[in-house]
Design a protein around this nucleic acid. Structure first.
Lengths: 135, 135
DNA sequence: GTACGTGCAAAGGTTTTGCATTACA
DNA sequence: TGTAATGCAAAACCTTTGCACGTAC
């Protein structure tokens, strides 16, 4: 169960943190801190932003969470930590996971002596719902 | 010259806008709005954020500028509008252009009926300067 | 018991907005 | 001259911080 699983993280488990972890578990909506705050506040009316942010920071530092820099003006969070990419609807901003692998080797010259540690692709498009709305 | 070139954009040309355009011309630093504001303020001490932001918005809408969502917490702007990617130093946050092309076709199933309009790769790494500093 | 988490409020940083004034075309 | 840009200040957002109190371990 969820307690068991998150004992391994190495953080103190509080009811607030469990609620955040539960909300994120399997969530594919790439929620913002504010969305997480509002969802968890229903259960913990005294929840504060400080707690949400500090928990998210801690989970990110432990590698249990990805902080996405996809949305101008706010961070989004992704509980799926396996390497993957994202497809974003340019109309409604919906974000969908893309788990396919791509060959993204950079030739020596292009790298300019950077040592490459990772990559992330953002695909842009129009989702079915928005395409229907336009037509 | 620059006036000639930017008459085609279809915006009213003011001294302030020319100064912004000149600052961006050939700039590969991917500056933030604040950096642009500070640079252009030296020439126009009365320059305001409103003017910088509205000019950047207008240029972006005219396709003369890319708004990069690479830096959490602030927008960065790129005057190079040909399709390219970016290599980001995870230590000093320096951003370098990557003009190589990649084959990023998505199979039908993955697309989930999205119509794809574009893509952008972020490469992460450590730049030579930062690697030297660490060693 | 102690270190760490929580909650509140205030502050910090970036971007947006309203409105009167100014200037391009 | 008419429309659009500018400048200023305030507000709106998102995120971070300080500190007193509370709680997991």
């Amino acid at each position: 169960m969820i307690m068991q699983k998150y004992k391994e993280i190495g953080l103190k488990l509080t009811p607030q943190r469990l609620a955040i972890l539960k909300f994120l578990e399997g969530n594919t909506d790439h929620p913002s801190a504010d969305e997480i705050f509002r969802a968890v506040s229903e259960q913990f009316p005294t929840m504060s932003f400080a707690t949400v942010y500090s928990t998210l920071d801690a989970l990110r530092d432990k590698g249990r969470l990805l902080e996405l820099t996809i949305d101008p003006g706010k961070k989004r969070f992704d509980p799926c930590t396996e390497h993957h990419h994202h497809l974003i609807c340019i109309s409604c901003k919906k974000i969908v996971d893309v788990k396919q692998q791509f060959n993204l080797d950079l030739p020596e010259g292009v790298k300019g002596d950077f040592s490459i540690t990772g990559n992330h692709i953002e695909f842009y498009g129009v989702c079915p719902d928005c395409r229907r709305a336009i037509n």
